[in-house]
């Protein structure tokens, strides 16, 4: 008699189609043209970057008529120095910095932004940063992030912002 079955291996994969919404598609097109845009809520005036097509706080639908441009510069509100573990497929070899950045003119931060051009020990909250364009832009994916059109961010050399200016945007 054979050994009792203890383990059953089931290899499962599911394929999903990632669909870029028209709002995300337009945002990506403008990013590739070097413009960062958001939607400004007609009720509360908050500017969402990337745009969602609505204001979730006021429950108002927004469209291109609510489009505004924000600057490619902002304030670093929080950050992490990441030590990459060398799992299979890992492309990062060295420590690097990802940050949340409050863009000038936006009401919330964009996350997962790479910061370069500064020793990691000197990265700090409140630091002013500017975009370095020329990244490998995608189609806007699901509308997350900034599409990759910006390679990374680097210090702009402006004086740091006081804590009061960004403390509501710290994660």
């Amino acid at each position: 008699m054979s050994e009792p079955v203890q383990f059953v291996s089931q290899k499962v994969d599911l394929d999903y189609k990632v669909v870029t919404s028209p709002v995300a598609r337009r945002f990506a097109e403008l990013m590739r043209a070097g413009r960062i845009t958001g939607h400004k809520c007609p009720v509360c005036g908050r500017v969402y970057v990337p745009p969602k097509g609505f204001c979730p706080l006021d429950a108002v639908i927004t469209d291109e008529s609510n489009e505004v441009e924000v600057r490619d510069a902002g304030t670093l509100t929080s950050f992490t120095v990441i030590t990459p573990i060398q799992y299979q497929g890992q492309e990062e070899k060295e420590e690097y910095v990802l940050a949340n950045i409050l863009l000038d003119g936006a009401s919330g931060t964009v996350g997962q932004q790479r910061v370069e051009g500064i020793p990691h020990k000197d990265v700090r909250m409140g630091m002013r940063v500017k975009a370095v364009w020329g990244g490998d832009a995608d189609e806007g994916s699901r509308g997350w992030g900034l599409t990759g059109a910006i390679k990374h961010w680097e210090p702009s050399g402006e004086p740091d912002e006081p804590r009061e200016k960004y403390q509501d945007h710290v994660l």
Partner: peptide, 16 residues
């Protein structure tokens, strides 16, 4: 079928 909007965008006008 083949809706391009996000699920939230699909719901928004229906709830309205």
């Amino acid at each position: 079928t083949d809706v391009e909007e996000t699920e939230t965008q699909l719901l928004f006008p229906v709830i309205n």
